[in-house]
Amino acid sequence: MNRATRDAYRDCLLPLLNQHPDLICLDTDTGLFGAQFAAAAGDQYLNLGIAEHNLMGIAAGLAAGGRMPFVNTMASFAACRALEAIKIDIAYNQLPVRIMATHGGLAAGHLGPTHQALEDLAVLRVLPGMTVVVPVDAAATVAFVKQSLGLAGPLYVRLGRKPSPPLPVLPAPVIGQAQTLRQGAEVLLACCGPFAVLGCLTAAGALAEQGIEATVLNVHTLRPLDTATLVAAAQPATLVVTVEEHWRAGGLGGAVAEALAEAEPRKVLRLGMPDHFVDAVGSQEYLVTHYDLTAERVVRTVSTALDSAARSGTINRKDPTT
């Protein structure tokens, strides 16, 4: 069943608040938490008003005083407007604040570039000690929220807005461990977020029909990056393609390219949003298609790259017909 990751988060948070009196839910009037939630959470829910720097500062003070705050805003406001408070007040002090950032990537859809977040992963993952995760679906969101209770430092969780499709049932993902969704030696498809991951799974199926076997790695944790799994998956591959709802600079593609450049150099092609602000109007799904972050694009990219490499003799492709 399609489900919004932000709704899955909210619904799993309430019982956790009841079980753990040290948890506090701090809101900036996002509208995610209704009157019923507020009543059930009692004094563990505070709506601080529309002030994101203040949100991060108060959360840091609360965490320094022994509480574990879940702070709520949109990804764009967390990563840009409140960044300095995240950097200095939260990350520098390694405080256990959980930054729950909705409207990640293109999830803001028609609301436009003021509300879209195509830079958040790049910005957050450079901060020392910050854990950065992108749950692929509702189940992964619930798993990460529960695991976060055992995490000592700060955490950034990129959430969506509208319902998105679930992955086929798998063991619950673990923060810090990239998830191998499909195995194949020739190409590594590294991805994060609902549309990118599902697109890569579809693409891997289509590539297999052309005789090209691909691994699909759901790199849901950008920091700390699971370099061991990434390198192991890249070793047999001749080509690595990254796919994400993010500008091409600095996000998952940047993280993968950095890690492989040092440990296992491969050609890395980064698929992401073109280097300009979104100028099209539509839903997240529409924009994903409009900007061609699709399975077809992944297939095209892989085929073209492998053909050109074969022609230039840099790789020796097996002929699938023999």
């Binding site: 720097h53 203040n54 991060m56 500062g57 108060i58 959360a59 840091a60 003070g61 609360l62 965490a63 320094a64 005083g65 022994g66 509480r67 408070a85 007040d89």
Partner: peptide, 9 residues
């Protein structure tokens, strides 16, 4: 804001 958080805690 930090002091607010400490006072709240």
């Amino acid at each position: 804001a930090l002091a607010c958080g400490l006072a709240l805690a």
